[in-house]
Each structure stands twice: as structure tokens, then as C-alpha cells.
Design a binder for these strands. Structure first.
Lengths: 228, 228
DNA sequence: TAACTTCTGTTAGAAGTTCTAACACAAGTT
DNA sequence: AACTTGTGTTAGAACTTCTAACAGAAGTTA
């Protein structure tokens, strides 16, 4: 099955895209468990086994969805960050955070696909690490430039030689971000967990019965990073 | 099917407990999707349909697991909080946070059952709201007593008459916590999202490839609430 | 003790699921 | 025209949840 012919390649890609498009609809409607190879095939007008010519199995279809989602998210935040070059650093941080939230709320199921409960037995392919890093990298670059404006480092756990800082430094070095100051790494990590804390609960509907506006809480958390 | 006989009631409860015990094992091993009525029955030495005498359907079994988990979590944090009466307020806040984290890490699958990706089509029974509130309530009471030690309220979004504060006030009043100061409610909410932000990513294994100690980050986030 | 009700189990089966095997045929290449 | 590759088919294995119909034990009552 070594596809080389151009027209066939094109047709093949289109078929895969259509399958993934329907899979995303199922994901939105019924969650990850609702993605059914059989049902996708039926909606495409073919029989179930036909789709196994395009995806080795259901997990490989999910892999593609995960990859696409990471890619899409990175595009979104990179565009937001690139579109605010020259503006105040605080503004750019908000711009990243807003883009992140907008993406999550526009397609909650995709956000949960990336950050939600991991599927048992399912292991994301290795290349998703790099794809995920694109989003983190966009954020870190904004934080790095804003680091002059960030509150001074005067707490012990935040010190550049704290255990946490040292661990992060190692990670960053391995990922080619060795030039970043540990404080930036720490702020980035904390920022990410705080934003995710709000978003994941919002997207999962946990705030539903409480009846307040999560946007206000989200904004407060972004502010906390810039002023604490 | 109106069970009244004592011995039968007891036997019935034991059977349900055994089924739930096995379900928890499946949950731990294969996630929520891996909970199979049929497989549980098989392991109990009965046929599949027999279990439908005890649980109307699969969702009702899940309901029971969710209820048990909320209950168990509340027990854990209530015990921790009760065990530190008289100690410094900061210490008690840490005590709550540590108990929360310990529970989550001891049984990640149960944590994800409560706070992870919501199951499509599945709606938690109404009484879980009250059960969930037990945990929140324990935290709020500690925060309330610690409120004198908390940093002063000097930011606009945190003002007692901000939109967010007013919304939270209304929620608290409806839940019988009307006596709490809006600042306490705000702190509680922010605290919760921050702790969850770290925990959910840790439990989902998202920190895995980064190789740092999440406990340090968690502790930093707890500190942030007490000093920001 | 006998009759009756309730509860708990059984098997059979419908309607799904993923995925493999074997086969048919069209499209593109030589 | 013959050959290879790609794409579809049907059949079927091994699962799943869940219903229906039936068997028999356990507990209650006359």
C-alpha cells in the first residue's frame, strides 16, 4: 500500500479529511467514546471495514485528531501573539491568554481531547510533544520579553537556584529553550496551570450550577501573574 | 422489587459493594470506559444480566461510584481539617491542600472521575451537588478563620462589590454560606482552580515528560494564596 | 405445612462495537 | 494486454449493553 500516484494521494487525503471531519462532529456530540469507525463509514456512504484502508485502527484516527488539535491551537495562539508585536507586554500576555481561552471555548471537546482525562491504553504519539511545545513556546517568548515588567523575584521558591527552577532549567535546555531565565520558566508553568485550572473546570461544566462568569475569574488569574 | 427483609437487604448491599469494588479496579486499570457490567459479572461468578437486578443500567453504577468518591473525598479533607483545630491558620490551609492532593494522587482515576472530562450523555445525579459542597465547605471554613491573616483586599477585581464577588455572594447565600465574606469566597474559588490546575495536569500525566516535581509547584501555588 | 409473593439467577437474542479475512474490481503502470 | 496497487465488498469472530422470558430459591402468610 505504497501510494505514490498524485491523484490517488489527493483523493486519499480528501477521504481521510472527511473521516476526521465527521469524527470531530461525533467528538463534539458524544465525546471521545462516541467516535465510532463504523458510524463514520456509514455517514460517508461506505461500509465499516473500508475505513481501515485509511486508518490502521481507531487509535490512529484519534492520533490524527490529537495532532490536528495541537497544531490548530498553536496556530491560534501564534497568530494572536504575532498580531500584537510592539504592543505593551502586559497586553500581549493577555492576548495569548485570550486566544487560548477562545480556542478552548470554541471547541471544548478538542480542548478536553488534549488536556482532559487521558484515555486508558491510549498513548499519544511522540511527535505530539513537539506540537504541544509550539504553544508553550509562543507563551514563553511573550513572557520572556515581558520579564522586565514582571514582579521581582524575591521569594525563596522562586529563586533561580531553587530545586524547581533547576528542574525546569534542565527541561528547557533539553527542549532548546536554554536561553530563558528560570523565572520566566517558572512564571510560564504557573501561568499555564492557573489558566488550565479555570478553563478545564469551565469547559467541563463544573461551574455550571454556581452561576458566575468564569471570564472574570480567568482575567483575574491572568492579572495575578502580572502583578504578584 | 421492594426489598424489605433484613438479611436480603444486607446480602443485596454486599453484592452491590462487591460490584462497585470490581468496577473501581477496572476504573483504575482501564479508565471509565473500561468499566464493563459484563466483565464485572463474570468476575463475580454470575452472568451479565444478573447485575441488572442491582443496577438499572451502567450509568447508575457510575452514579454510585461518583457519589462514593465525593463522599470519600469529603471525609478525607474534613478529617484533615478537624485534626488541625487550634493550629495556625496557614498550617490548616496547607493541611487541607495536602489532604486534597494526597487523595487525588492515591486514586487518580477517582479524581478524574469527579473533575475530569465529563462523560457525554452522562449527567451526575442531583445529590452530588450537596456531596461536592461538603469538600468546598470544609475549605471555606478554614479560609474564613484564616481570613484575618490573608493579604488585604486592595485590588479592584477582588473588591467586595465587584461583579464576580456579587455573583459568588449569591451562590453562597443559596448554598447556606451567606455569612462568608466575599473575599473568602473569592479566595476559595481561586484556590480551588489553582490547586486543580496543578493536580489535574499531574494526574493526567501531562507533566510526565517535563521531569520536575509537581509537589513543589503545588506548594508554591498554595503559598501564593496565602501571600499574594 | 402449603400457597403465595418477592428476589435472584438463568439462557436467548437484538443491536451495537472494533477489527480480520477473503474476495471483487477499478485505476494506474509497464 | 498483463500486472500491480488501491479501494471497496461481505462474512464473521469476539466483544459490548440491555431486554424478555423463564426457573427456582428465599421469605411471608394463611
Amino acid at each position: 500500500m505504497r501510494v505514490v500516484n498524485d491523484r490517488r494521494v489527493k483523493y486519499r487525503e480528501e477521504t481521510k479529511e472527511e473521516a476526521k471531519r465527521i469524527a470531530l462532529e461525533q467528538l463534539a456530540e458524544q465525546g471521545v467514546g462516541g467516535i465510532s469507525v463504523n458510524a463514520i463509514a456509514k455517514r460517508m456512504g461506505v461500509t465499516g471495514p473500508a475505513l481501515y484502508r485509511y486508518f490502521k485502527n481507531r487509535d490512529e484516527l484519534l492520533n490524527d485528531l490529537v495532532r490536528d488539535a495541537w497544531s490548530d491551537l498553536a496556530d491560534q495562539v501564534e497568530t494572536a501573539v504575532a498580531g500584537t508585536v510592539g504592543r505593551p507586554h502586559r497586553y500581549r500576555v493577555h492576548s495569548f491568554a485570550d486566544a487560548f481561552r477562545a480556542w478552548a471555548l470554541a471547541q471544548p471537546h478538542r480542548y478536553l481531547l488534549l488536556f482532559g482525562t487521558p484515555l486508558p491504553g491510549y498513548h499519544a504519539p511522540h511527535d505530539t510533544i513537539a506540537l504541544a511545545h509550539r504553544t508553550m513556546s509562543a507563551f514563553l517568548s511573550v513572557l520572556d520579553q515581558a520579564s522586565a515588567d514582571l514582579p521581582p523575584v524575591d521569594r525563596s521558591w522562586q529563586a533561580a537556584d531553587s530545586p524547581l527552577a533547576r528542574q525546569l532549567r534542565e527541561w528547557a535546555a533539553a527542549r532548546g529553550e536554554g536561553g530563558l531565565h528560570p523565572t520566566v520558566l517558572l512564571t510560564g508553568l504557573r501561568a499555564f496551570t492557573r489558566l488550565h485550572g479555570v478553563l478545564s473546570l469551565e469547559v467541563a461544566g463544573q461551574f455550571g450550577p454556581m452561576g458566575f462568569d468564569p471570564a472574570l475569574l480567568y482575567r483575574a488569574e491572568v492579572e495575578s501573574l502580572l502583578s504578584d
